[in-house]
Each structure stands twice: as C-alpha cells, then as structure tokens.
Design a binder for these strands. Structure first.
Lengths: 215, 215
DNA sequence: CAAGAAATTGACAGACCTCTCAATTTTGGC
DNA sequence: GCCAAAATTGAGAGGTCTGTCAATTTCTTG
C-alpha cells in the first residue's frame, strides 16, 4: 500500500517518511468517504502509525488537508509543465494541459477526488491552480488564436470544466475520451474555430502516469 | 428566523410545519459549515425543536439532505420555468434560465450553498438539474441556433459553469454581473456568435426573489 | 557503543453525536 | 369540551473522535 508521497521521499530521514506516509493514507481516506468523514484515527491506522504520531506532524486535520491538496497540485503542475516544455502553440498547450490534468487526476483516484473536494474549501488552492492555467490563456490571446478577454471569470470557468472532467472520470465512470472532449469545448469557449478545436484536442498524446515510471 | 420552506406551508398541519422548520434550519446549518459538519442536534436546536422530534420526520441526516436539496431544486425549477413561460427563443431561454438560477441560488445564500454541496454527493440531484436544462438545449439545436451536438457531457459542462457562478457569487463575493457573463460564455460554448451571445445575455431582466413577494 | 535527542506509542479524558423510548403535551374530529 | 391519536420532549445508552502525555523505542552522533 505504498503511496506516491512515500515513494518520493525514499532514503530521507524517518520524520519525513512518516509524514509522507500520513499524507498518502490521508489521500486514500479522503477519497474513500470524503474529507470530513476521514477520522485522524483512521488515517493514522492506515499509515501504520499510532494516533499520537499524527500530532507530531500536523497540528490538526486542516493542516493535513492543506498539505495534501497543495502537495498534489504542485506535483501535477510540475509534471504537466515539464511535459509541455517543448510545445509552443497555445492551442496545443491548453488542450494538452487539460487532457493531462484530467487523466493524471483520475489515474490515482484518491488524488483526483481529494483535489476535487479540496478545491471547494481552500480558496488559496483554487487560486494556485488558476494562476497555473492562466499563462497559456494569455499566450493564446497574444498570438491571436484565442478571441476572448482573459479575466478571472474565464479562468474560473476553464477550471470548473476541468474539474467536472475529473468528477465524471472518477465518480461517474466516464471513459478516457472525456478529457479530449472537454478540451475541445474549452477551446471553443476560447473562440477557437470548431474544426481546429476538434483537431487539436483529439490529436493522440502520450499520457503521464502518476506513479513514477518503473516504481 | 423564519425560512423559506416554512413560509410556504403556513396554515398546514403541525407535522408539515415542523418538517419545514427543520428543513429551513438544515439549509442554514449546511451552508454555515458544510453538510457534514451540521449535527442533527444543532439543526434541531436551530429549528426550536427537541432532538427527538427530528427522528419523527427523517430517518437520518441523509434523508434530510435529500429532502432539502430536492426541495430547493424543485422550487427553483418551478419558479424559473414559470417565469420563462412566454419566452420562445432558445437563446433567450438559456440565458434567462442561467441568470435566474445563479441569482436565485445566491439570493438565499444558505440555499445556494446547500445546493452546491449536495450536487456533488447526490447523483440523482445532478441528473434532475441536468434534465431540466436539457430541454432548452435541444430546442436550440432544433431551431438551428446552437451549433453543437447535445450530449450528456455538454449538459454537465453547462451545469458546472452555472454552479461555478453560484460559488463565485456566494463564496467569493462576486457581483450580480457574474450571471450575465456566465450566460454569455455558455452561449458561446453552444456555438452562438459572440455578438449575439453578448447581446442576449446582457439584456436587462427582472430577477426573481427567493422570498415570496411581500413575505 | 553510549547517551542524549527525536520520534513513536497507546491509553485515556473530555467532548460531542446518533438514535431510542417512556412520559407528556398538543391536535383536531366529533 | 372531550378524548384518542399524533406529535413532541429530553434524558441517556452506547459510540466515535480529538488532542494530550508519560513512558518507551529508535535514531544519530561523538
């Protein structure tokens, strides 16, 4: 039952590893029955750690929720950013980013759902995700391919459709095509002509996996 | 502290009135700190009723959540539907419906936020809201003003943007213009030309109020 | 390898929660 | 106004949860 946070800190000191185990267990439990329903006892137990140990690493559950959500968000952002490094076209970047995000968030369901739930209760997290997305929107406008005014609302709407993708994919059993279809809708929302939006969003891409290659 | 459910059942039998009071108190508490955090004791107390009385009316909290969410959704649907009775143009109907929905859901914040939170945990509620929206999308396609294929995903995306509107309006302090702007984005998503989308969604309308006229 | 530092353990106090039920009050039909 | 039926009350049994702490184990460093 080793999780992703734990794999990332192999070889580090004990304290760091225990903290990571708690975060993995938390993501697991959050996704299972919701953030609220996950008790600290249950999380500690799932992390093979006694209840008191939890309080060595986090003041309370809120702090844990924040750490998990931001940890996941940062991880996603870094991985997607790196994978897009050599894509210049804004249309491709938006489509690629959306599709990767949805698949990434769904490939480890506990992460996807933790993120989903946390976004609505952590405004700071929402802003972080939003600012990550915004750069490519501005680029597209500069290049003249997006015919819209980029403001906070637009970014929020892009985000809400992406999150809906994660929700459909993880909770409603939607298939992997959903990512491409949502990307297509997003591009149309941005004023990209339908034909181009369809083409750009359905182009085959190599999906990232949450688990580091060869775990 | 009389709520909306209670006003609606003035003069009915005691059982019905108590039930409505519990639902009002529940919406209040749900919005305050989330559905999970609202204890039955606290709800009963807020409804000026003893804890045991709660169990005369609802088996458990889930049943209450369902009753409140569906009650709110049905109420909104009926009111908006009635107010749109004489609008034929699909573009106008979508824009009008979205704007009314967002304002209605935000005018009684406890209702809006209860609805928001419940949609993500009650698939049946999501389907109900979706099916309500779908009729007008089909109409627009039939009339040739919406240049899209209407499928479940499109409906879900329309809904997610509407819900984002409620969220921004109730939790992020967004102003009343948000409704019109979201409606505009939705119309563009549906393939309506930008100029027409803007015109249709910014046309002045008379907003419904949650509270019955002259309470 | 010794010993101080750091991390972990697990029992538990105190709080709060759900749901039950016998006793009591309120309704509403006659 | 009477009274059976319906609704309400509130105490409390039985749980679960959070956060604390003295005791114990595990590091780590000289």
């Amino acid at each position: 039952m080793t999780g992703v946070f734990a794999e990332r800190v192999r070889g580090e000191g004990k304290s760091v590893r225990t903290r990571a185990r708690l975060m993995d267990a938390a993501a697991e439990k959050f996704a299972e029955h919701g953030i609220e329903a996950a008790s600290i006892n249950a999380i500690a137990h799932a992390a093979d750690v006694s209840n008191g140990t939890f309080y060595n690493h986090f003041r309370d559950k809120d702090e844990l929720v924040g750490a998990v959500a931001f940890g996941i968000a940062r991880d996603f952002a870094e991985r997607i950013d790196a994978a897009m490094a050599d894509i210049d076209d804004a249309v491709q970047r938006v489509s690629f980013g959306t599709r990767q995000f949805i698949e990434l968030a769904s490939s480890e369901p506990s992460w996807g759902q933790s993120l989903m739930r946390a976004v609505w209760s952590l405004p700071a997290l929402r802003r972080e995700v939003a600012s990550f997305a915004r750069a490519d929107l501005d680029r597209g406008v500069r290049d003249g391919v997006f015919r819209v005014e980029v403001d906070d609302l637009l970014v929020d709407l892009m985000m809400s459709t992406g999150l809906m993708g994660v929700y459909l994919r993880t909770s409603e059993g939607a298939g992997p095509k959903v990512g491409a279809e949502i990307a297509e809708h997003q591009l149309r929302l941005l004023g990209v002509p339908p034909a181009r939006a369809h083409r750009a969003s359905h182009r085959p891409i190599e999906l990232l996996a949450v688990r580091p290659p060869q775990a």
